[in-house]
Design a binder for these strands. Structure first.
Length: 291
DNA sequence: ATGTCTGTAGTATACAGA
């Protein structure tokens, strides 16, 4: 099962990149962020193409800003928009913004998340970001982390290695101790940052600012994550950032993150048994030609 | 270089958000 997460920075603007990418990469489950469409507009724009590609989908839309979607062609059950306790903004007690959708796909509880940006340290929006992450942690615990796949634009670089120049980010959002602690609280429910596990010492970014040739110079950040529960980690067969999608004409400023999971060991195929040894072969002696 | 993209409003260009 191939799972991808991609902040498309407007699905309407990204259709010419999104549809070919779906056909080429053929992900089974796709988490999209910043769709910037309401529900009806998303269905009108993409419904026919998504059906043709075999996807069911759930879109938590909002129109102008935000918006998250989950596409799946391996089942889409028990869809949840937002999660219990999601704070609103600017009123924490108000309606949640469209920043979370989740569903069960092939036995995996998949979350497509767009964590609040935070804007400026100590701002109302920054406090909102921290509160939002605390609510996410509680929701992940309640749903059960072991078979969860928490995906999306997390808007936090987990470590200094996840930004091109830690000094350049000093005092800014995305790297503060409080944000990293809030993310750790989510991870510490029992999740693994799959990309960092696969590439422990590599330069791996998922976002590059549009300005100043940042992508060309590979001056980016790793803020788009796939966090896997303990049951899923042993199934990870591949994990990478699809940098090709950041190249070319009219890209998003984020690249997709892709993880391939081996099939669940559900017993349908039976246990893997080593082939019987072949005594004849094992005892065969090599006879060199004489002379 | 506060350097580029999105969206909106609304018709040319400015503003906000990222």
């Amino acid at each position: 099962m191939r799972v991808a997460t991609w902040n498309v920075n407007s699905v309407a603007a990204r259709v010419p990149r999104l549809l070919p990418w779906l056909s080429q990469r053929r992900p089974d489950v796709v988490c999209l962020q910043e769709t910037k469409l309401d529900t009806q507009a998303f269905d009108a724009l993409l419904g026919e193409d998504l059906r043709a590609l075999g996807y069911a989908w759930a879109h938590h839309g909002q129109g102008q800003w935000n918006g998250v979607a989950l596409l799946s062609r391996v089942g889409l059950d028990d869809v949840e928009m937002a999660f219990g306790g999601t704070p609103g903004y600017p009123d924490p007690a108000g309606a949640p913004e469209a920043r979370a959708v989740s569903a069960v796909c092939a036995g995996v509880r998949v979350y497509s998340l767009y964590v609040p940006n935070g804007r400026e340290v100590e701002s109302d929006h920054y406090e909102y970001k921290l509160t939002w992450l605390a609510a996410l942690r509680d929701a992940v615990i309640a749903a059960g982390p072991s078979s969860a796949l928490v995906c999306g634009d997390i808007n936090i670089a987990p470590a200094d290695a996840d930004v091109f120049d830690p000094a350049a980010f000093a005092g800014h959002t995305h790297v503060t101790d409080a944000e990293r602690a809030a993310l750790s609280a989510v991870v510490d429910t029992g999740l693994t940052d799959v990309l960092r596990q696969r590439w422990p010492d590599e330069r791996v970014f998922s976002y590059w600012d549009y300005r100043a040739g940042m992508f060309h110079k590979d001056l980016g950040m790793r803020i788009d994550l796939i966090l896997a529960g303990a049951d899923l980690v042993p199934r990870v067969a591949a994990a990478f950032v699809d940098r090709q999608a950041r190249k070319g004409t009219k890209p998003s400023d984020h690249a997709p993150v892709i993880v391939d999971l081996d099939d669940a060991p559900d017993g349908d195929i039976g246990p893997v048994v080593p082939p019987p040894s072949n005594p004849a072969r094992r005892s065969a002696k090599v006879t060199l030609p004489q002379g």
